[in-house]
Design a protein around this nucleic acid. Structure first.
Length: 497
RNA sequence: GGUCGGUUGGCCGAGUGGCUAGGCUCAGGUCUGCAAAACCUGCUACAGCGGUUCAAAUCCGCUACCGACCUCCA
């Protein structure tokens, strides 16, 4: 926890030094998915970004409570229909069955990407009481009004009372919002177009419904995050995150609801991740510009020429800053795949320097220590993973040179080497959250290893006898089987490519 | 139409008022029986036009283009 951590606060639009509300503790809330369909690849990017943020906060020594909700009610579709009940009707399933199915699918996908589970994963339907209470508070404060069984947040009244706070996060001007005479149908109950529902009256065919002081209905989408974040993290807490497409109206309304109910600030730092694009455009199902995580894993899509593993994709994400849009193209993925291989091979090479090392440090030893420190330091600059990764790649060259003999291990002390291994491993696996896929080879890997030892031993014999025909035959045959042989100073090595 | 953000070398992608990003590709070299890998070297960019400055890709203005949000969205 030595160096200060800076992060970009969307609320103030600048980088700020992070200071937790309570020393040593961090409350982190991230808007989770709506579980009415399979996870979108963009979700994966956002939650992976926050996973790295979560991991780094823990690495800094903070005790973090990470809350990420599951939205299983209240989120309206274009047709004004609840997403959960829509999915249910189409599939002839209970809403909770739909929610369960996609929640499980979501968790599976998070595991694929090696995202740690949050500490609390509250469901909107499990917090109806809290949400009703919040509506009551807002009503009691005179910042909402009931109309025809629904309750609307009164933006104009809120702004009068709270010094024109509404619009602060998204940079929207209340006058423009009010003046915006959008031709919205069925908004007759609202006083102003900018008002939003915090409780919705259930129509007759609406499946998900609860009793409330205003009749049967269900909570507005924006309300759940206000209710659940404050329940688990307090009326004021440290960090709130989400995709930047949620800034308005979702997060803006959330802030208003928090202030409108308890008069408290909510989150102090707002972090927003940028969108995932494909071929320079927004992913969209309607025009075919879309790809699922599964399709990337298998390569079964017209948009890609190859398959990409979850960890390779995670690496790809690390190469772009979380606040920049990330453009998914096959060409970029290809480049990243090779870069990722280079990184994992360097890590494997480093492990082979086991038990070696000189008596004291020369230039190389210092470079390793300083380079690693520089990589960590970049994480303190608003979680700058691309820059941290750049530092790591400078270290990759050093590692490979040590392995290849271009640099001497005498230049690196035993202690430095061991510290370096540990420190780099922590950065790659604990902070970046990459998984050492090499270790997961399992029993079949062991068998293959033994066979390969034998084959390479035979090939070495052939080479010693200058029997190049035999030697090359073995190499080519292995190549056909997808095994790449590399001849080094210390004999041949192989990788499954 | 309104609001906000972006435009970096062959591709991707960081970044700071003056000093090397990094990955991939490409070219040359070292090593090697050959190849691959690895290592070394090179390829030196910041949309256009103006302005501020001793100095700008980095600050300001205008233009062009792209994107996001304004309606469900991570």
């Amino acid at each position: 926890m030595s160096n200060p951590l800076s992060l970009y606060n969307s609320l103030t639009r600048q980088k700020e030094v992070f200071e937790p509300l309570h020393a040593g503790y961090v409350g982190l809330y991230v808007c989770g998915p709506t579980v009415y369909s399979d996870v979108h690849l963009g979700n994966c990017r956002t939650f992976t970004s926050f996973d790295i943020i979560y991991r780094y906060l823990m690495h800094k020594g903070f005790k973090v409570r990470y809350v990420r909700n599951i939205t299983d009610v209240g989120h309206l579709t274009d047709e004004g229909e609840d997403k959960m009940s829509k999915g249910a009707r189409l599939a002839k399933l209970e809403p909770m069955e739909v929610a369960q199915r996609y929640t499980v699918g979501f968790h599976d996908m998070m595991r694929e990407f090696n995202n740690l589970p949050p500490n609390i994963e509250p469901r909107a339907t499990g917090h109806i009481i809290e949400q009703i209470e919040m509506v009551q508070q807002i009503l009691a404060n005179g910042l909402a009004y009931e109309a025809n069984g629904s309750v609307y947040f009164d933006v104009a009244a809120f702004n009068e009372k709270h010094g024109n706070e509404y619009g602060k996060l998204s940079g929207r001007k209340i006058d423009e919002l009010l003046a915006e005479s959008r031709e919205l149908k069925a908004q007759s109950d609202k006083k102003n177009p900018s008002d939003f529902a915090i409780w919705m009256k259930a129509t007759e065919d609406h499946i998900l419904r609860w009793n409330s002081p205003w009749g049967e209905g269900f909570p507005g989408w924006h309300l759940e995050c206000s209710a659940m974040s404050t329940k688990y993290l307090g009326e004021e807490f440290d960090i709130h995150g989400g995709g930047n497409d949620l800034k308005f109206p979702h997060h803006e309304n959330e802030i208003a609801q928090n202030a409108g109910s308890c008069g408290c600030g909510g989150a102090r730092y707002w972090l927003h991740t940028n969108m995932l694009l494909m071929n320079g455009r927004k992913m969209s199902k309607s025009d075919g510009n879309t790809i699922t995580p599964q399709q990337l894993f298998t390569g079964d899509s017209p948009h890609v020429t190859d398959s990409y593993s979850p960890m390779m994709l995670r690496f790809f994400m690390l190469q772009t800053h979380y606040r920049s849009p990330m453009d998914l193209t096959d060409e970029a993925l290809q480049a990243a795949k090779k870069g990722y291989q280079r990184l994992t091979e360097a890590w494997a090479n480093l492990q082979e320097l086991e038990g070696l090392g000189g008596a004291q440090n020369g230039t190389v030893g210092k470079e390793l220590t300083e380079g690693l420190a520089a990589a960590y330091a970049e994480m303190d600059e608003d979680f700058n993973t691309p820059k941290a990764l750049a530092k790591v790649f400078e270290l990759v060259s050093r590692i490979n040179a040590l392995k290849g003999g271009q640099l001497s291990l005498k230049e690196v002390s035993k202690e430095t080497l061991e510290d370096f291994k540990k420190g780099l491993g922590t950065l790659l696996f604990d902070v970046f959250g990459l998984r050492d896929e090499g270790e997961a080879a399992g029993a079949s890997g062991e068998t293959l290893g033994k066979v390969m030892d034998l084959v390479l031993d035979l090939r070495a014999q052939a080479r010693a006898e200058k029997n190049w025909t035999m030697s090359d035959k073995l190499r080519d045959a292995l190549n056909d089987a997808g095994i790449i042989v590399k001849d080094g100073k210390e004999g041949a090595e192989w990788t499954v490519g």
